[in-house]
Design a protein around this nucleic acid. Structure first.
Lengths: 207, 207
DNA sequence: GTCTATACCCCGATAGAC
DNA sequence: GTCTATCGGGGTATAGAC
C-alpha cells in the first residue's frame, strides 16, 4: 500500500540543511501544501501523515489539538512562504508600481509551473472556515495583515503618505488574491498580468 | 432527529409563486447556499437533502451523476443570483465608476447582514476543485466569464473602448472577488469599500 | 517519539419497495 | 418520484505497546 515507509530520524536537531528536516517540520510542510491545493475539508490527516512520511501517532504527538491545531501551524507556514515571494517581488524594483508588477509576474509563473494548483496558501482554507473555525480564521487574517504590511512599507519607501499607503496596500493584496483565484479557475496568466498593469496604473496616480 | 419532515409536493408544475417550488429547485437552492458557505468538500449530500426537505432518493433521482452533477447545477444557480446583484448595482448609476462603487456597497451589505458568511457563491468550491473536478471548474469559469461580460457592457455603455472595457472588467471582477474574500476573513466591510474607491479611481483614468 | 490497531462516525452511492 | 435501509470506505481521534 505505502510506496514509502515511515523513517526513523536519528539526525533530529542538526537542522539547517534540506536533508535533515524534523518530523514536525515535514508534517507542517505537507499540511501546508495540501491545504493550499485541496482546502481544509478536502484534506485528511491520514493523507498529510502519508505525504510527510510520518505516522498518525506522530501527527497527534506534535499536534494534540488535532486537525485544527495542525491547520493553524500550516497556515502560518504558508504565510511565511508567500511573504518570502512577496519580498522577492517587491525588492525587484525601486519603483513601487514596477515592484507590484514583479509580484504578479512571480505569482503567474509559480501558478503556471504548478499547472495552476499552487495558488494562495490560505485562500481555500480561509473560505471554508469563515465563521466555523475561529482559530484558523484568525491565522488567515493575520497572514493577510502581514502581507499587507509588506506592501504598505514598500509604498511608504516609494514616497506615499502612510495613510494612503496602508489603504492602497490593502487593495493591492485583495486584488492579488482575486486575480490569483481567477487565474487558477481560468487556467490563464492573464488575470494576474492584467491585475499587475492596473495596480501599477493605480499606484502611479498617487505618485 | 429531523426537525422538519420531508414533504409530499402535490402542486408540482404550478410554479411561479414562492410557495410551490419544485423538489429539484429546492435541492439546487440548498446546495448553492451550502457550497457558498462551506465549500464542496465541507458539504454533504445528506445535509443538502435535509436542508432542501427532500430525501436522498430524490437527490439521486434528479442528479444521477451524484455530488458533482449537483454541484454544477448549484454553481450555475449561484452564478445567476450573483449576476442579479451585479446588474442591480450596475444599474444604480449612469457613470460606470459610480456603478461599480454601488456594487461594492451591495456586496458589503449582504456580507455584513449574513454575518460574513454569504460571500461569492463559487469561490470556495472553485478553489477546492481546481484541477480536480473539471466539470465543476468549467462551471465556475463560465460564471466568472458571465459576470465579467456584465461589467464590460457597462463600461462600454459609459464610453470606453471595447478592448479597454474587457480588460478592465476582468480586473474589476478579480478585485471584487479578492475584496470579498478579504472582507469575510477580516470580518470587515473595509476591504470592499476600499476596492470600490480604487476601482472608481482606476476607471476614471480611462474616461 | 514512533508505531499499530481500533473505536466510532459520517461519507457518497445504491437497491428496491411503494 | 419518494422513501428507507444499507453497503463499503474513509474520516477524526484515541489507546497503549515499544
Amino acid at each position: 500500500m505505502h510506496t514509502t515507509k515511515p523513517r526513523h530520524d536519528t539526525t533530529e536537531g542538526t537542522e539547517g540543511g534540506d536533508a535533515a528536516v524534523g518530523t514536525r517540520d515535514r508534517i507542517v510542510r505537507a499540511a501546508a501544501r495540501l491545504l493550499q491545493r485541496q482546502g481544509y475539508e478536502g484534506t485528511g490527516i491520514k493523507q498529510i501523515a502519508r505525504d510527510a512520511e510520518a505516522t498518525l501517532g506522530s501527527v497527534y504527538h506534535f499536534f494534540p489539538g488535532g486537525k485544527q491545531e495542525l491547520a493553524v501551524a500550516a497556515i502560518r507556514h504558508g504565510e511565511q512562504e508567500f511573504a518570502d515571494m512577496l519580498r522577492a517581488g517587491l525588492a525587484a524594483d525601486d519603483d513601487p508600481a514596477q515592484a507590484v508588477v514583479a509580484c504578479t509576474l512571480l505569482l503567474a509563473t509559480t501558478l503556471r509551473e504548478s499547472d495552476w494548483t499552487d495558488g494562495c496558501p490560505v485562500a481555500a482554507t480561509a473560505l471554508e472556515t469563515v465563521g466555523r473555525a475561529p482559530d484558523i480564521q484568525r491565522a488567515c487574517a493575520e497572514a493577510i495583515g502581514h502581507w499587507t504590511d509588506l506592501v504598505s512599507d514598500k509604498l511608504c519607501d516609494g514616497g506615499l503618505a502612510e495613510d494612503t499607503a496602508k489603504e492602497l496596500a490593502g487593495a493591492t493584496i485583495s486584488t492579488l488574491e482575486g486575480a490569483e483565484l481567477t487565474a487558477q479557475v481560468l487556467r490563464s496568466e492573464e488575470p494576474l498580468l492584467a491585475a499587475g498593469r492596473h495596480l501599477a496604473r493605480l499606484i502611479r496616480t498617487y505618485q
